[in-house]
Structure formats: C-alpha cells, structure tokens
Simulated scan of single mutants.
Amino acid sequence: MELSLLLLLALLTGLLLLLARGRLKAHHPLPPGPHPLSFLGNLLQMDRGGLPKSFLRLRERYGDVFTVYLGPRPVVMICGTEAIREALVDQAEAFSGRGKIAVLEPIFQGYGVIFSNGERWKTLRRFSLATMRDFGLGKRSVEERIQEEAQCLVEELRKSQERIHKEIDRVIGSHRPPALDDRAKMPYMDAVIHEMQRFGDLIPMGVPHTVTKDTHFRGYLLPKGTEVYPILTSALHDPRYFENPEAFNPDHFLDATGALKKNDAFMPFSIGKRICLGEGLARTELFLFFTTILQNFSVASPVAPEDIDLTPQAVGVGTVPPPYQIQFLPRQRG
C-alpha cells in the first residue's frame, strides 16, 4: 500500500514537472536569463536587498535585456537608457499595454487610467486630460492655489523651529520643475530638483508593461501579452549619462554656461505612451513648494551631512525614504 502511494506521488510529480517545463518552453524564444525552478521560477535567486538590486545584478551577466521568471510567469527586464527609450518611445505602441501588480489587481481589476488597457485606457486617458485642463492645469490659477497651500505649510513649520520630518521628499515631490516666468533666473534650483528626483525614484522598476502584439526587440521575439518591466533606476543612474551617477551633484543637469540642459536618461516618471499624466501638475507643485520653503527657511540637519544615509528602503517593487531628522530654521526678515 505504501509503495503504491509512493509510486503514485512520483508519477504525479513527474507529470507536474513536465507540464511546468512545457509552459516555460512555450514562451521561447525570449531573451536569456537565469535558469528557473519549476513553479518558483527565479524567486529564490532574488537578493534580500530588494528586487531592483537583484535585477541590476543579473544585468551584469545577461545584458540590458533578459528574462526572469516570477513563479511560472516569464517577465522581460529592460535596463539602460537606450534600451528603455527604444522600447517605450521607438516602439511605443507595441509596449503600450499595462501589466498587472498582484497585490493591486483585486482593487483596480483592470480599471483606472493607470491599470486599464485597450480602448478603456484610451477613453480614460482622454477624459483625465480634459478634466485636468478644466481644473486649470497649466494656467496661473493652479499656480496660485499651490502657492496658497505652500504658504499654509510654511506657517505650520514656523510653529516649531525644529520639526522631525520622516518623509520630507514626499512633501517636495518627485517630478520635474515647471516652466514658470522666473524659471530662467533659477537654473541651479531646477538642477537641484532634477537631482533630487534622480535619487528619489519611488518606483525604480517602473510600472509593468505588456506587449500588445508579437514584436521583435533587439533580436528577440516578444509574443503578445509578454510582461515587461523597464528598470527606470538603471537609466537614472546610467554612467553613460551621469559622470558620477551615485553622487548627488546638480551639475549633472547644467551645461558649461550654467544653463539647464536636457538629459535623455532623466525619466523619473517613465516615458512614452504610459508617461505619468500628472507630471505637469506635479512638477509645478514641486517647484513652488521647494522654492517657498527655501525662501522662508534655512534647512539643516542635526547630524553632519556626510553621516546622513538617505539610501531608499525597498518595499516590494517600490522604495520609501528612511526616517531622518531635518531642521527648518526661519530666515531673518529684512
């Protein structure tokens, strides 16, 4: 009896392994990657420091485009500025599908402008853009409302000369600055904000895309429905576009004359058809909040700057800033 049960279990295990292997082979030819285990895929090979670090480590071995199995599901990782732009800009339509994030799927269920696809997504995107314009996006009225909120923040900060802020980069945002009237007078400020965004990428992997049709990409065939992750942090820290990518240096965004310069690797909120809809509003908020704070306060830390560790903490596919203290010291009014 025991022998028969063992034989039955062995047979079932063998069949399951064959089925799993068949599912994995059915997706070839995809880009190369680490050999997956049945059912678990490459999950056991992921770094404890977080998924983005694991993928950057795999990039060193397999190049800018490789395949990782998250469980039995193959996912193509795209790293580096050129590869990401080639996919999301040069082949924008083919990579315009939206993949699923398992923990969020029960909530959104394919709805919403971020997670929808096809005609539903196009309709929602047009509606969202029209609604944002109706609310005054890009007009002076929106800037005035943001300035009112910024002044409220300043008054709150004035109530205490020392205030602990665990998520100050959430207050000042993670987007590019706007084209305001006095922008030409503040290129260095713009460069500082750009550099803050480069280090403050909240979703270093980007939101997943899916291929909308069978597509040839860098010598590989990506069948329709293949899930793709653009690893945005690999562009934001690309040594081919930033002289010292791991150092905070606003000069990364300034030319020899001190003017703000464009950098193709700067994509904190993705690029292409799925670029963040709220980027314009967010960069206006960032610029106005940040400049209002600096006009009213000197910002300091109770510890030496070289002792501050601002390394983001991995949380799933995203990151959050570590807790730290910051002081807002009111400037003397003259």
Rank of each mutant, 00 (worst) to 15 (best):
T291M: 06
L221I: 04
Q313L: 14
L6W: 14
R183H: 15
E60A: 07
H35L: 15
M267L: 08
D47F: 03
E82N: 02
L56D: 03
Y324A: 11
L221Q: 08
E246S: 11
T311F: 09
R23T: 13
Y229F: 10
A94I: 00
A304R: 09
L7D: 07
D90L: 11
F108I: 02
I271M: 14
G71H: 04
A83K: 01
K100T: 10
L19W: 13
F55I: 02
R23F: 12
R183V: 14
G206C: 08
V154C: 12
D201N: 13
L70A: 09
A300G: 12
L12G: 06
V76I: 01
H28L: 15
I193M: 09
E285I: 11
L16G: 07
A247R: 15
R331C: 06
P204C: 00
G33E: 04
I146P: 07
G334E: 13
D264L: 12
L254M: 07
L40Y: 03
T67F: 04
K122C: 07
M186L: 14
P52W: 09
P322H: 12
A282R: 11
V154N: 10
V65H: 00
I107N: 05
N244S: 13
L180G: 12
K100P: 01
P31A: 10
F66Y: 08
S234H: 03
T67V: 06
G118E: 05
L19K: 04
M1L: 15
K122P: 02
F287T: 03
L222W: 00
D307W: 05
L5G: 14
H194S: 07
T215F: 01
L88C: 05
L310K: 04
L281A: 01
R163G: 11
P312E: 03
K159L: 12
M186K: 14
P106V: 02
T212P: 02
L12D: 03
H237D: 05
A300I: 07
R158H: 10
L19N: 08
Q91Y: 03
H35D: 04
E156F: 10
A191F: 06
L221E: 06
R163P: 05
A94M: 00
S301Y: 12
L286S: 15
E148P: 06
L9T: 09
G99E: 04
